[in-house]
């Protein structure tokens, strides 16, 4: 019986930049930061939302030669940049405060907070181009 989802991978264009975005802008916490073997400048880097430390997001670099051919890596990079991938819903206590804070930190929103049938929702992109829903869900 499957019980939980504990890890997901998000493709990022640059791990250092993604680290800055997820930690310093979104306020996530680093869970694991381990240099890869052999050391190729990349690392096993997982981060988690502050209130959800056991849900790790693996910020995966699109590394040519490691998992992908040159052609596949280029295609994947292009798709990420174009905002092809929606990565999930992040929830917050107060969407207007979170929206104002992230905007002040330079996060790009593609949709400002808007009332939906499940709460209030905005959309933003990470530094690679992946998009997320930011939501304040209705209680109950």
């Amino acid at each position: 019986m499957i019980t939980k989802l504990t890890h997901v991978s998000i493709y990022v264009l640059d791990q250092n930049s993604a680290y800055d975005f997820y930690i310093n802008k979104l306020g996530f916490k680093v869970v694991m930061d381990v240099p890869l073997v052999p050391a190729n400048g990349h690392r096993w880097l997982t981060v988690a939302p502050p209130d959800h430390p056991d849900f790790e997001i693996n910020l995966t670099p699109i590394t040519e030669g490691m998992w992908y051919s040159k052609e596949t890596a280029e295609t994947l990079r292009d798709l990420v940049k174009k905002g092809t991938f929606g990565c999930g819903v992040l929830t917050c206590d107060d969407i207007y405060a979170t929206y104002e804070e992230l905007k002040a930190k330079g996060v790009e929103f593609t949709k400002p907070p808007k009332k939906e049938f499940y709460g209030v929702e905005a959309l933003f992109k990470d530094d690679s181009g992946n998009w997320f829903s930011l939501a304040q869900l209705e209680k109950g």
Binding site: L36, V37, W44, N58
Partner: peptide, 14 residues
């Protein structure tokens, strides 16, 4: 380091 990297990721990475 490999003690801290999940086997699935390490395996796929060779």
């Amino acid at each position: 380091p490999l003690r801290f990297i999940p086997g699935c990721f390490a395996h796929k990475s060779g």
